[in-house]
């Protein structure tokens, strides 16, 4: 079976661990617990009739991506750059971060995810999205599970298309 490494990255407190737990275990914890290093687990999914093993890395949040150890990106096939829709500081470095990530992981699939959609008034969502400096691929809620599977399936589809 084909297996692919996916890294959840972004600033601290944006919900990377919650997305990890929601996708892998269908679990959500209201309490914030900081990640200090790395957790890795895997899940097999069916994408267009093909089995794909996703090896998902949940790493400690960093305000700037160049603080993440380079070895973490070794062998990665996709990156999920997560920011918090309710905290502008979590997307203020986005352009710089994405430029850096593309430079150190050429050819890797990147998705930009605005998390915590459940905390945003729908009337204010467009205002927030206008302020985000890059194209957002998905808005998600790790709490309700909204779009979480879709993020990973869209990555799986692109990885299989490229395989």
């Amino acid at each position: 079976m084909l297996s692919k490494k996916i890294i959840l990255t972004g600033s601290l407190g944006v919900g990377k661990t919650s997305l990890f737990n929601q996708f892998l275990y269908q679990r959500f914890d209201e309490k914030y617990l900081t990640t200090i290093g790395v957790k890795v687990d895997k899940k097999t999914v069916m994408v267009n009739g093909r089995e794909l093993s996703l090896l998902v890395w949940d790493i400690a949040g960093e305000i700037k991506q160049d603080k993440v150890p380079r070895t973490y990106f070794l062998g990665s096939s996709a990156l999920i750059y997560v920011f918090d829709l309710t905290r502008p500081t979590t997307y203020s470095n986005m352009l710089e971060d994405l430029k850096y990530l593309k430079m150190i992981t050429p050819g890797v699939v990147i998705r930009v995810i605005g998390n915590k959609i459940d905390l945003v008034d729908l009337e204010k969502l467009n205002d927030i999205l206008d302020k985000v400096p890059a194209t957002i691929d998905f808005t998600t809620s790790a709490k309700t599970g909204e779009n979480v599977e879709n993020v990973f399936f869209s990555i799986g589809e692109e990885l299989l298309d490229n395989a």
């Binding site: 290093g37 790395v38 890795v40 895997k42 090896l55 070895t71 070794l74």
Partner: peptide, 28 residues
């Protein structure tokens, strides 16, 4: 070990005597 699995191919493709690959605070 999912961490090992996800870097294994890269390890065997790397040169011998290359740098060590280190991961701190791996939660398992």
């Amino acid at each position: 070990f999912p961490l090992l699995e996800s870097i294994f191919q890269s390890l065997i493709e790397s040169n011998t005597h290359s740098e060590a690959y280190e991961y701190f605070a791996v939660e398992t």
